[in-house]
Computed example of a mutant assay.
Amino acid sequence: MKALKINLDQLITFYFIVIEGSLSGASARLCISQPAVTMQIAALQKQFGVKLIRVKKKKVNLTKAGEMLFIHAEEAYRSAMRAESLLHGHRSNNLRIGVAAALMVYLIPVVDQFTELYPSVKVTVREGRSLNIIEELLDFEHDLCIVGAFENVNKELRAFHIPDVERMILVGAPGDPLAQRQMVQWKDLDGYPFILHCEGSIARTVITREFRKRNIKPSISAEIDNIKCMKRLIESGKGVGLMFYPNVKEEIAHHELSIIPLVDGDLKVGIDVIVNRETALSPPAADFLALTGSRFGCIIAAGDQGFPA
């Protein structure tokens, strides 16, 4: 077999220069200095005598050869990441999970049960916004992710849908005017101070879709990506908010928050368990997936894990 003349590190550096659109962006993604990035791409161009990029005002533009090479650079990078994910996955003591912040309360019991059943497996859980977690899954940083139900799942992913896991409830401070009423309708939220989840959250997508459907425009007091901060703002009377009951049940029990009943329709949210199509599911991930299905009363078939095509 003929030995490769191309330096794969240089090829990957070229890939990130294109993805980030700048040498500084590639430097940040690769965690190396910008001069090192410049040296890598210069060496690659010099070795083959081909100009790949042009830098003008710190912005990278591809030559025709660069455009053609990028296709192979992307394939090389994704192939290397698949290989790395495969090796990680076949370490029987490792499981990496991404979870949407609002759904952490549902994941904790499953993780606790899993660690009891499989004490030798190291479970790493990363919490974040749903869209960020999914981007990390596409970059092979997780074995699986648990997020709010998506309407359209990226074709590179496979999703198992668990419908109507929990309804979102409207909550406010006990002294909030809406909390004093016996009957509240969705239309009462039009123009009303409202605390909303930040961009990138599936909860936000579900809520804003409901508002659009009902032609409601609340007055957004704040956009928060932290559940604790959201609860504190609502408790202080800055507005009302729609939240999952398990995330606020303690505050409701202590009368720090009040449930505001909506009489004209519940807002129910499902969960998607998502894996990357490009990687084989490791034994720990398959076991965790089955345990998750059992927790929510779903049967996840072996082999294809019950995911729709």
Rank of each mutant, 00 (worst) to 15 (best):
T115Y: 00
V111A: 04
L157C: 12
S120E: 09
S201D: 14
E135W: 11
R214V: 08
D143Q: 13
L189K: 06
G191K: 02
E116S: 10
E156I: 06
W186I: 04
Y118W: 12
F160R: 03
F114L: 03
G148F: 01
R181T: 07
N154G: 10
G191Y: 00
C198N: 11
L103Q: 07
V206T: 14
I134D: 00
R181H: 04
S130F: 05
V105S: 03
N132K: 08
W186S: 13
P174A: 13
L117G: 04
Q180F: 01
L189P: 13
E135R: 15
I133Y: 01
P109Y: 04
P119W: 01
R181K: 14
Q113R: 14
R167Q: 08
K213H: 05
L189E: 12
L137H: 00
K213S: 05
L196T: 06
A173Y: 11
F140C: 08
R167E: 09
I133M: 00
D112F: 02
L137Q: 01
Y192M: 13
D190V: 03
A173M: 11
L131S: 07
V110T: 07
G191E: 02
D176A: 01
E151F: 02
V125C: 05
Q182H: 07
L170I: 01
Q185R: 14
N132M: 10
R167H: 07
K122G: 00
Q180C: 04
Q113E: 13
R214P: 10
P109F: 02
T124P: 01
I146H: 04
S130N: 12
N154R: 11
Y118V: 03
D188T: 03
R158I: 10
R158A: 14
P109H: 09
R167C: 03
V125P: 10
M183H: 08
R158D: 13
M104W: 07
V123H: 14
N215M: 12
I162Q: 00
L103G: 04
P163V: 02
S201V: 09
A203Y: 00
R129Y: 11
D112R: 12
A159W: 01
E156Q: 12
S201W: 10
E210F: 00
K187T: 15
D112L: 11
F150N: 12
L107G: 03
V206M: 08
A173S: 15
L137K: 01
R204C: 08
P163W: 02
